[in-house]
């Protein structure tokens, strides 16, 4: 009885908190739910007034069309993401190791350069980059896009890896080197196996960066053939609305959901690594 009264009192105290939380949550989920519910209906029910939260008939036709439209760009995104992630690891791990374990003049300035790249307005770089890409034959090529993405992910990854490597005990490496391991051997055999969480964080953030990028891909390529799904979606919704046609709205919306699903899957399975990435004191999230 007393117990019941106490829970009741606790609940009534907490009621305003749950109420406020509910209101904020509503604001967070409504756009997402509205997006999803707009895609699982026939086109005829997309344009109705007043808006209907629950469609009268259920239809996945939009997804069928969206998969056809976005198949190639989705594949591009996935391939670029994975290749960029691998390339980033190959390039960033040695650099981060060099910055934590080796001594040479100019080390601080090098770290400064990596930090500086995180504060630049990237639009500023686009025009010269566009011109040099044209000259080098990298414009509108897969290789060119992957090089661009890697340059974007490397500085951030080096900073992330650096702060993680710095926290590893140096004794293990010294032991290995006394036993005849070279520096690089120590990096490969000792440091990297101990760094799995941060390596996963680097891979994950690289893949997500490529997946979400719009800016670089738009300016460094022109054909849908080589472009990523994010850009395909963007082009689809601007081109269509510019020509005044709204008939394909449901395909775009379904494409938007398809684009989000892989990110949700990655986040859900690798949540603890993301937290590790953030707490490692990185500059960018």
């Amino acid at each position: 009885m007393i117990h019941a009264r106490r829970t009741l009192r606790k609940m009534s105290e907490q009621l305003p908190i749950y109420g406020a939380l509910f209101a904020l949550t509503l604001f967070i989920v409504v756009p997402f739910l509205w997006l999803v519910t707009s895609t699982v209906r026939p086109v005829s029910e997309l344009y109705v007034y007043p808006p209907r939260w629950i469609p009268q008939t259920f239809s996945l036709a939009a997804y069928q069309k969206a998969f056809q439209t976005f198949a190639k760009p989705l594949l591009n995104s996935a391939v670029y993401g994975i290749v960029t992630a691998i390339l980033t690891l190959v390039v960033a791990c040695p650099a981060a190791y060099s910055l934590t374990r080796l001594n040479y003049p100019g080390k601080r300035s090098v770290t400064g350069i990596f930090l500086l790249t995180q504060m630049l307005p990237f639009v500023l770089l686009l025009l010269p980059l566009y011109i040099i890409y044209l000259k080098l034959g990298l414009y509108n090529t897969r290789l060119g896009l992957i090089i661009g993405f890697t340059a974007l992910t490397v500085p951030y990854s080096v900073l992330l890896l650096r702060s993680f490597f710095a926290g590893l005990p140096i004794e293990l490496e010294e032991q290995a080197m006394i036993d005849g391991c070279t520096r690089l051997g120590a990096l490969w055999r000792i440091v990297l196996p101990l760094s799995t969480p941060v390596l996963v964080a680097v891979v994950l953030s690289s893949i997500v960066l490529v997946w979400n990028d719009v800016l670089f891909t738009i300016f460094l390529s022109k054909d849908l053939e080589v472009q990523t799904a994010s850009v395909a979606l963007y082009r689809f919704f601007t081109v269509r609305s510019a020509s005044g046609g709204v008939a394909q709205k449901e395909v775009m919306l379904a494409g938007g959901v398809i684009l989000t699903l892989p990110v949700i899957v990655l986040f859900t399975f690798l949540q603890k690594y993301i937290a590790a990435g953030i707490t490692a004191g990185a500059l960018k999230g």
């Binding site: 390039v91 060099s98 080796l102 001594n103 790249t117 500023l124 040099i132 520096r183």
Partner: peptide, 26 residues
């Protein structure tokens, strides 16, 4: 150690130099 230190930085600076450094100077 100094040489190795610089050598390990080279790959990352190739990428950053092409995509960020050169366009910035230009």
């Amino acid at each position: 150690e100094v040489l190795l230190g610089y050598a390990l930085l080279v790959p990352s600076f190739l990428f950053i130099g092409l995509v960020i450094g050169y366009p910035l100077v230009r």
